[in-house]
Amino acid sequence: MKDKEVLLQVRNLKKYFDTPKGKLHAVDDITFDLRKGKTLGLVGESGCGKSTTGRVILRLLEATDGEIIYNGKNIRELSPKEMRALRKEIQIIFQDPFSSLDPRMTVSEIIEEPIKLNKLIRDRKKRFERVLELMDLVGLSRRLMNTYPHELDGGRRQRIGIARALALDTKFIVCDEPVSALDVSIQAQILNLLKELQKKLGLTYIFITHDLSVVNHFSDDIAVMYLGKLIEKASAEELFSNPVHPYTKALLSAIPRPTLEKTGEKIILKGEISSPINPEDNCRFANRCPYARDVCRQSEPPLRESGENHFVACHLF
């Protein structure tokens, strides 16, 4: 951790939603650091709170409690004006390239919008040059400038989203499942592009995904979430070679591998994720865990260091 400057510190972040049935604990007391120029993979299945975490960090949703410290400033305490200024640096790339672009705007209008809105470049011609530059950067052919998003395929649309995210003084991007809606061959193109841009522009990413093979390929550190809780976090290498939490182990073994060499026994979990509404004070994974003991059903395990820079929230360790 000492080797690199920390860009983002998330401390005891909570986000609860009020529902008719009670409080939905979407994000429940999570803490992590993000180093400058690195990628943190946020992994988990649907409903684990990973996307909510991303949106709360960007203040697209207001957190219920906790601190989000970006470059020394607590984002949660910024005034609307300061927040708008900060938005030039922090950006998001969405999962669905079909609903994240305004269907009534052309490609160049979409990429131009953030520059115009934040009055970054006032001169029309110069702004237009910047748009073309961005299109080149993300590998969008210039002739597509005047097309509408629905005329393009998913891969190209995702490139528009990326160009838009880079249009400002971007330093930090939350990538919310940016490739899960794409075909495999296009997925690889976009992953490579994101990696290349990170190197070129020194970007810092939070990479949210349910696809463990993608996250392993892409991230430096990985945090695994389950029902709003952060249950394990370590460097990617450590997590994949030495998973500790039973859920992480099951998750890793459940991925269908495109190879004929069988790697270890599959752990098939029983049951399904339990309700995030008014959860009881226990290990959220206890009802599916093959190793659950009484203590797991009685109290919540804290996040503890199990090895060097390897944290896990499990009573068994």
Partner: peptide, 25 residues
């Protein structure tokens, strides 16, 4: 739709979002 959130993410204010994105669509 996500493009409304996308507009918020680049710092658009509410009235800009309603006039530029919500109403035309």
């Amino acid at each position: 739709q996500e493009f409304i959130e996308a507009a918020r993410a680049i710092g658009s204010r509410d009235h800009t979002i309603i006039l530029k994105h919500v109403l035309p669509n």
